[in-house]
Simulated assay, not measured.
Amino acid sequence: MLKEVCVENFTKVPEVIAKGADRIELCDNLAAGGTTVSHGVAEVTINYCRSNDVQVMTMIRPRGGDFVYGKEEIEIMKRDLVHVKNLGTDGVVLGCLDADGCIDEQAMSGLLDLAKGLEVTFHMAFDEIRPENQFKAIDWLAEHGVERILTHGGPLATKIEQNLVRLKEYIAYANDKIIILPGGGITTKNLTSITSALNIREVHGTRIVD
């Protein structure tokens, strides 16, 4: 079971790696759902993780709030992506939607072009896609080389245990063409029961190692 631990800045990185984190999702501002970290945080974290043989997935998100971005915000994301790629990140975590509750395919295509050579996770913007469009979104992301989708399976206000049926639907539909990475409310206390119920090989959370 691969454990991806979401961290805010560098502070807890040594601790969670010592406790068994296999991969780090590096963010700032977790209270807003995660945004891009500073240059210094990115460089120090990437170098530390590399020296400990742990992968880093760096969040590319210019602000909190929704996932509908303007032209200038997309440009910021592109620059941040190239920057962390040059620093040696293993992958990036991002997601762009349009006003209709679908993937912003134009924005995503531009970002994915720049991300070539990196792993890409489409983050919990997925949960803001209209339910009737989510399976089409899985197809689009898989066809465009995205490795995984981070999802709670429903609104974050719900417990992840309430969303297991929907998560199973995603996993069955994805059918190994893209990884469904459950997250949001998974802890050391419910980790075993959730991973067993979903039969998954990767899991994401801030409290999944102890």
Rank of each mutant, 00 (worst) to 15 (best):
Y170R: 12
N190G: 03
A172W: 03
L198P: 06
Y173W: 10
K177M: 02
I178P: 00
G183I: 06
I171K: 15
Y173A: 09
L181R: 00
Y170C: 09
I194R: 11
I180P: 08
I186W: 10
T192V: 08
A172D: 01
N190W: 08
G184A: 06
N190L: 05
A174Q: 07
I180F: 06
G183L: 02
G184Y: 01
I200C: 13
G185N: 09
L191G: 13
G185K: 09
N199L: 06
K189P: 11
L191F: 07
I178W: 03
I171F: 08
T192W: 01
N190P: 05
R201P: 07
S193E: 12
I200S: 14
P182D: 07
I178T: 05
G183Y: 03
L198W: 05
T188W: 10
A197C: 05
S193V: 01
A172H: 14
L191Q: 13
Y170I: 00
Y170G: 04
I180L: 04
I178V: 06
I179T: 15
D176K: 11
N175G: 10
I179P: 03
L191T: 13
A174D: 03
T188H: 12
A172Y: 07
A197M: 05
A197G: 13
I178E: 02
T195D: 06
G184Q: 09
P182H: 01
P182Q: 10
I194P: 02
